[in-house]
Write a protein that binds this DNA or RNA. Structure first.
Length: 375
RNA sequence: GCGGAAUUGGUGAAGUGGUUAACACGCCGGAUUGUGGCUCCGGUAUGCGUGGGUUCGAUCCCCACAUUUCGCC
């Protein structure tokens, strides 16, 4: 069944929103954080463990599943949910970000994008129609339009042309979309330029998508100020009854600032990547468990109800990470995702109480110890 | 007992009679935002077994000693 979003409340002092997502017999609350499972697995976690982190929607990637195992095999398996044994909602990215990370600008044409496989160097060609057809077959619950994701520092001229083409691609993708149980989102680009974001948002909204994504953020070492502008300049022109999704955003402070600017859902590789590299998110900042000071620290990462904190010590997890044991990455992935979902819960509570700005200030004080700078 | 070889950081090791002793691993830090999971970037021997000597100068040459190792009796 198609996901259904209903707006529940708007916060008094900010643009933050509270919403409900209905999915079969389940209901999820927004704002929400979505862990990334590129290859139809949230790296190192079983679906049961994903659920134990209180996650709802998870991501998978069109580009990766297109190459391996191929969308036809996933379709033969009965779709992504059956294939990976996950009965919660799944969102697929369109491959647009891989265009940004793998292709040269000169290989982007009106028809589509030519680039090389990261696996074996094969020449590949992806088009809006192809991306949507793959996502239809994968049978995810939310599909993304195929977009170009230019770096925030690209010239105004480049961004403008890119946005116009992305809008034409969005239209083509919408025409090609054939899966009635699948939502399709359009993607807003435009760097930190107010007029470009406005143009991109208005034109994309005209195409009437099921939800809207904000792309092209945190991809170019741009300042946080610019990232937050990109949020505000985009959400300002989006309909209130549709989901807003900030793509690739996941630093705790960015989640809070994003919600304040009217965003509902976020995804990010950071909790799982940080985990693999030995870092844990805590209320009092990010800690590096590889640091020798944790060698004999027999206390949990933090006062947290996740499986890792309930059962294991920093010294043990440090040992696992030092030995490159996957169980360490798994425990930290559980913890970091649980942490972000807990943070989202606190954000939702603050919206209910209309005190999100106070919550932000307190968060900054705890997380950065008063040493926070926005650039 | 005799003869040979070796002795460089936490480890494996390269190296030269003359400014900062290569490299790798380990260790110690840091990075990581729509994922090319085990990556990237820094730091890490004031010292070349010990004691003498030769030399303007020695980790590098000579002598003694110690330790290790190989061969022979």
């Amino acid at each position: 069944m198609k996901l259904q979003f209903t707006l529940q409340k708007e916060e008094k002092q900010t643009d933050a929103r509270l919403g409900l997502l209905k999915y079969n017999d389940k209901t999820y609350e927004t704002p929400m954080f979505m862990p990334v499972g590129t290859n139809a697995t949230v790296k190192t976690l079983s679906p049961e463990e994903i659920k134990d982190t209180n996650s709802g929607i998870i991501l998978a990637n069109t580009y990766h599943l297109w190459l391996r195992p191929g969308e036809d095999i996933v379709a033969k398996a009965g779709g992504l949910h059956k294939f990976m044994n996950y009965d919660g909602p799944i969102l697929t990215d369109s491959g647009g970000f891989q265009v940004f990370s793998l292709a040269n600008p000169k290989d982007i044409t009106e028809e589509g994008v030519k680039f090389k496989s990261h696996i074996n160097g094969d020449s590949l060609f992806l088009t809006p129609e192809k991306s949507i057809a793959i996502q239809n077959k994968l049978d995810s619950d939310i599909a993304m339009s195929f977009d170009e994701c230019p770096p925030a520092s690209a010239s105004y001229e480049y961004l403008k042309n890119s946005i116009e083409r992305t809008i034409r691609w969005a239209k083509r993708g919408k025409m090609a979309h054939k899966n009635p149980n699948q939502m399709l989102f359009g993607i807003i680009q435009g760097g930190a330029h107010e007029d470009l974001r406005e143009f991109s948002a208005k034109e994309t909204v005209k195409l009437d998508f099921d939800g809207y994504s904000i792309g092209g953020v945190a991809n170019d070492h741009e300042s946080k100020e610019d990232m937050y502008k990109a949020f505000s300049y985009s959400t300002k022109y989006l309909p209130k009854d549709k989901l807003r999704y900030a793509m690739g955003i996941g630093e705790p402070i960015d989640l809070i600032e994003g919600v304040i600017r009217g965003i509902d859902i976020f995804d990010c590789v950071s909790p799982t990547r940080l985990a693999r590299h030995g870092h844990a998110l805590t209320k009092y900042g990010k800690i590096n468990l590889k640091n020798s000071k944790y060698k004999e620290d027999f206390t949990p990462i933090s006062d947290c109800n996740c499986y890792a904190c309930q059962n294991y010590t920093k010294a043990y997890i440090r040992h696992l990470i030092t030995c490159n044991e996957t169980f360490g990455a798994r425990l930290l992935s559980v913890h970091n995702i649980y942490y972000l979902n807990q943070l989202m819960q606190e954000i939702r509570d603050a919206i209910k109480n209309d005190n999100l700005l106070e919550f932000r200030d307190k968060f900054i004080n705890d997380y950065y110890g008063g040493k926070y700078e926005t650039n």
